[in-house]
Amino acid sequence: MTVGIIGYGTSIPKLRIKVEEIASVWGKNAERVSSGLGIKEKAVASFDEDSATLAVESARVAIQSAGIRAQDIGAIFVGSESKPYAVKPTAAIVAEAVAAVPDLTAADFEFACKAGTTAIQCCMGLSASQYIQYGLAIGSDTAQGRPNDALEFSAGSGAAAFVIGTEKPIAEIEATFSYTTDTPDFWRRQHAEFPRHAGRFTAGPAYFKHTLGAANGLMNKLGTQPKDYAFAVFHQPNGKFPYRAASILGFEKEKIESGLLTPMIGNTYSAATLIGLSAVLDIAKPGDRILVTSYGSGAGSDAFSITVTKEITKKARRQPVPVWEQINNKKYVPYAIYAKHRKKLKGM
């Protein structure tokens, strides 16, 4: 049975901080940091936003663009590494807020930056096997970086939600392929406030091995090549890795630029690949094929081959406010205000 994306929605906070503002606090060369990471600024969740509120906002838009009743959603899975509670499901908060309760299953997933795409895979299985009518898969994070760490320049905030089902998809998911190993490139121990990472080790043996492994595995499985795809979306921990992954795989850089948003909003972790896919769906035409490959430290990648259908041209099937419009609706804050909103000040 064909399974696909029925609706989608994204939520990007309004606040931004520029890389040069963070660099000025720590006495670093802003130009070198910005060009080294390929990031100009990042989205900052305000004090009253967290991964649950962003998940709810994106879910409401996804349900609206799907044109379905929330009560017909049989599963909600939220992928995040910045849950507001260590123990208490964000998915249940989302289910209540969108009025999908009580007849559904719900759970939170964690796999660094790829938990959102794993949520999609679970919804695909449940809806294709007709255990549920629709599943709601969400990637949402308000990522934190230790002050003065490279991650502080890149860790952003955002969410994307996808309604997955079999009826009138705006994009069919032809296949998915995953690649997973135990690779300690990035982690946050129990009760630790900030994550640790293994510097350059996060590239070759981690991001590239798994991203290329999943993307190549998927294309081998389907017998497709980069030339068969109009767009490619890769996980984007910075603004440079996706270009290198695309180049190694044989994708022209123009094919990844529509879904490469980290330079403007930072790495939104579990949401990064999914917001990239949303930006592509905002502009894609029927027949366009999209290769999507997430990456989560620890480590693993989920790849998807997606083909846009004619349904996407029908009224109200795309999200009402496109990703780029959300990105351009912004307010810059200085470091002190950023520190207040992200509760980085002692005693808050």
Partner: peptide, 16 residues
């Protein structure tokens, strides 16, 4: 919009 409305202490439940 859906937001945190109140959070009295770090270990308490969050009111959305």
């Amino acid at each position: 919009v859906f937001r945190r409305v109140h959070e009295s202490e770090a270990e308490e439940a969050i009111a959305y």
